[in-house]
């Protein structure tokens, strides 16, 4: 019996890998190896949770936006992020996990979200830095994922990428405006840059030399570019934008490499990265408590909606 099951699983794997090799996309009803399904659920749900948790540091500034224009833009941007979360939850659900399970995994800590959102948004310049650097880094990653092998994930990425470019631009505009302002505004912008630069580089994950689990992710075309490749892409385009508006990159070892055509950055503080992942960042506790509270506060609304549906069904 066990041999028979093994043979079936092997056949699934062979057919699946043939499809991947051909560059075909995988759809929800296609047979796929368990490892592929698990990897995707972990990655897509982490991505979805990041979009939703990422609304918190920015939401914190809606009531304090300096102008009505800035407030409208920030609201629209945060609403987009909520939408991104929903596209991605939808994609994860096609793999056979329910929305309730996904939320429960977030609340119990089984599922992670991007480390970057465990840092606080201290000043208005942070809203600029988040849009410019954090969304900028996210875009580089998401553009690459548009060609990921799982159809629903890839389609969600295409939709997200269309919306993200405004996010990065509105952040850059805030930074540019502040750099063209008073000395205090310039200092505030540089301070935000100093605090967000390194965590943004960490968003791409560990160096290629120390990420042992990426083998299948590449073979199965979930991941199309390596962490370091994407990080370099981000640095190359961002350094130029910083220079244009007079911001200094807080990395004294940063230098242009004529041969590779890329910038080389100084050493990343992975100790801090792991410390924050382990739950000891400045805002981990606050972010999770807030999510749990809002989820519980919304319970009566969901229950009322259900009661309303049942009542209407009885009337018909």
């Amino acid at each position: 019996m066990e041999n028979k099951e093994q043979a079936i699983e092997e056949e699934i794997l062979i057919n699946f890998e043939k499809k991947i090799e051909n560059g075909d996309s995988i759809e929800p009803k296609d047979k796929m190896p368990d490892g592929y399904r698990k990897h995707l659920i972990r990655q897509i749900s982490q991505h979805a949770h990041s979009e939703v948790i990422g609304m918190q540091p920015e939401g914190n500034w809606i009531t304090r936006a300096p102008t009505l224009r800035a407030k409208q833009i920030l609201l629209a941007k945060i609403q987009d992020e909520g939408g991104h979360g929903l596209y991605l939850y939808g994609a994860a659900e096609t793999l056979g996990i329910s929305r309730s399970e996904l939320i429960e995994q977030l609340h119990t800590g089984k599922a992670k979200y991007s480390n970057i959102f465990n840092y606080p948004a201290l000043t208005w310049a942070d809203i600029g830095a988040i849009g410019w650097l954090v969304d900028g880094a996210a875009i580089v990653n998401q553009v690459s994922l548009q060609r990921t092998s799982y159809g629903p994930y890839s389609r969600a990425m295409v939709r997200i990428c269309k919306e993200e470019s405004f996010h990065q631009r509105q952040g850059y505009e805030i930074m540019a405006k502040m750099m063209a302002g008073t000395k205090e505004q310039q200092e505030m912008a540089q301070d935000a840059m100093n605090r967000w630069w390194w965590p943004s580089l960490m968003m791409f994950g560990p160096h290629d030399s120390s990420s042992p689990n990426s083998g299948n992710a590449f073979k199965w075309k979930i991941k199309r570019h390596s962490n370091d490749e994407l990080r370099h892409k981000f640095i190359d385009k961002t350094v130029q934008q910083a220079q244009v508006i007079g911001l200094t990159i807080p990395d004294k070892d940063l230098k242009w490499n004529e041969k590779t055509g890329h910038y080389e950055h100084g050493a990343i503080n992975w100790y801090e990265f792991h410390k924050v992942i382990a739950g000891n960042g400045p805002c981990n506790k606050q972010r999770m408590e807030h999510h749990i509270k809002v989820h519980n506060d919304g319970k009566w609304v969901r229950e009322a909606a259900e009661a309303h549906r049942l009542k209407k069904e009885r009337q018909n």
Binding site: L86, Y87, G90, A156, R159, A305, R309, K312
Partner: peptide, 19 residues
């Protein structure tokens, strides 16, 4: 376009528009 969660058809339409 994708999917949404809703308790009935009018909520589904509104959520679809917003999303």
């Amino acid at each position: 376009a994708g999917s949404v969660h809703a308790s009935d058809k009018s909520m589904a339409l509104q959520n679809a528009r917003d999303t």
